[in-house]
C-alpha cells in the first residue's frame, strides 16, 4: 500500500464502520447484528493498518493481531450464546430478549 492510498483506506474504513453500526441499530436478527459487529471490528482493523502505514511504525499492525485474536474468541462465545438463546426462546429477534429490565 503506497502512501497515497492511506486516505482512501481510511474513508473505506469509515464507510464500513458506519455500515456496521447501522446494521447493529437497524437489524433485528441477532446473527445479522453479530455480523455487523464483526464488520465494525474489521473496519477498525483497516484503520489501524492505514495509520500504521502512514506513521511508518508496526504498532498498528500488532494491535490488529490482538483484535483478530479477541474477535475470534468473541465469535466463539457470541455464537454459543446465540445458540442457547435460540434454544430457550425459539426466536432470533433481538427485541424479544428483554428480561433484564426493571
Amino acid at each position: 500500500m503506497s502512501a497515497d492510498l492511506v486516505q482512501p483506506a481510511l474513508v473505506l474504513s469509515l464507510v464500513l464502520f458506519v455500515l456496521g453500526a447501522l446494521g447493529v441499530f437497524l437489524r433485528r436478527n441477532i446473527i445479522t447484528v453479530f455480523m455487523c459487529v464483526e464488520l465494525m471490528l474489521n473496519a477498525v482493523n483497516l484503520a489501524f493498518i492505514a495509520f500504521s502505514r502512514a506513521r511508518g511504525t508496526l504498532d498498528g499492525q500488532v494491535l490488529v493481531f490482538f483484535v483478530l485474536t479477541v474477535a475470534a474468541a468473541e465469535a466463539a462465545v457470541g455464537l454459543a450464546i446465540i445458540i442457547s438463546l435460540q434454544r430457550g426462546q425459539d426466536t432470533l429477534d433481538v427485541d424479544a430478549f428483554r428480561l433484564l429490565k426493571w
Partner: peptide, 16 residues
C-alpha cells in the same frame, strides 16, 4: 431504573 429497558440496541445506542 427506568433507564434499564432491556433492549440491547438501546444500550448500544447509548454506548455509541
Amino acid at each position: 431504573r427506568t433507564l434499564q429497558t432491556g433492549l440491547v440496541r438501546g444500550y448500544a445506542l447509548v454506548m455509541l
